[in-house]
Simulated assay, not measured.
Amino acid sequence: MRIPRIYHPEPLNAHSEIALSEDAANHVGRVLRMQPGQAIQLFDGSNQIFDASITQVDKKNVRVSLEEGVLSDNESPLNLHLGQVISRGEKMEFTIQKSIELGVNTITPLFSERCGVKLDGERLDKKLQQWQKIAIAACEQCGRNRIPEIRPVMQLEAWCAEQDDSLKLNLHPRASHSINTLPLPVNHVRLLIGPEGGLSADEIAMTSGYGFTDILLGPRVLRTETTALTAITALQVRFGDLG
């Protein structure tokens, strides 16, 4: 069986014994039903991994003994910030999970004119917590040792107006540029993906005013979740570490 990789939310120290977090203990003890003596691997977001062995399992707690930490950098040289207008149902969860597997560093969920999702207050807080847990689980699965940030939800224009030195890209079915025509090198990209119904004409004009470049992926119209993953893959192939 593959040795489980578990995220620990606090800094880890070699040759120490710790209790796993509540979520991790539930996964290791109740879901995987692991026992004392079995091996797991821990990471804390510092780009180190720690081999460990389980020393105690009971109904609520799992304790493990850590070995020496080893540097393990699986991050892409391309820093990608995804601005994703919130999609319905499981589509948003799917986009978060797969984009993190593909190397995205930061995700900001967005509201736009044609966003079909209404969230506020407690429901929104619960969604953000759920999305961050999905990000952690994606890192545990894919081998990343830094946890991407799921930022608080923003309005589209407020996100577009944020100042940084990234190449700013917006997918548009009538754009004249493709990812392959973008100049090299590129180290930071801010990628905007609209909702199922697309951005409105006013929103597209607004993104242009904030320095976004319209790009085209191909001749076919893609769903929002397909668009995000296709664009991220193409960017990683051209500027990052895929292919």
Rank of each mutant, 00 (worst) to 15 (best):
L66D: 12
D23Q: 13
T230R: 00
P185I: 00
L217H: 05
K59I: 04
V237E: 07
T224I: 04
S65Y: 08
T230I: 00
P109Y: 10
Q236K: 01
K59A: 13
I54D: 04
E68R: 05
T227Q: 01
W159A: 02
L182H: 05
R88C: 10
D165F: 13
G218Q: 07
Q38E: 15
P148H: 00
D23V: 13
L119V: 13
S16E: 15
Q84C: 08
G198R: 00
G243R: 06
S87E: 09
A25L: 11
R5E: 09
S21P: 04
L169T: 07
D164A: 09
T233N: 02
E17R: 13
A52H: 11
S166G: 06
P148Q: 01
F50A: 07
K98Y: 10
I96A: 06
I6Y: 03
Y210S: 06
T213N: 04
I49F: 10
L235A: 06
V237G: 04
M34G: 11
R144E: 08
N61I: 13
T106M: 14
E225G: 03
D58S: 09
S178D: 01
V70R: 13
I3Q: 06
N187L: 02
Q130P: 03
A205Q: 13
L222C: 01
H177L: 14
Q163N: 13
E90K: 08
L32R: 05
A24I: 10
N105E: 13
S176W: 02
E75A: 05
Q38L: 04
D120F: 11
T230M: 02
P9Y: 08
A137S: 15
L124Y: 06
Y210F: 15
A14Y: 04
R220K: 06
I179A: 02
F212K: 01
I232L: 01
E162V: 08
R146M: 14
V153F: 08
H27M: 12
S16A: 14
L229W: 02
R238E: 10
V28G: 00
A234E: 04
V64E: 08
S166L: 04
I150C: 06
G121M: 10
D214P: 05
Q141T: 09
P219H: 07
D73A: 00
E10Y: 14
R238Q: 11
K98A: 11
V189R: 01
A205S: 09
G29N: 10
N26C: 07
E67K: 14
R123D: 14
S53N: 09
A234N: 03
I232W: 00
M92E: 14
V117G: 12
L199P: 01
P183L: 04
I40E: 05
S200D: 03
V186I: 12
T233E: 00
I150M: 04
G69C: 05
A138C: 12
F111M: 11
A205T: 09
E75I: 00
L119R: 06
P185N: 03
V117S: 12
E90I: 02
R33C: 13
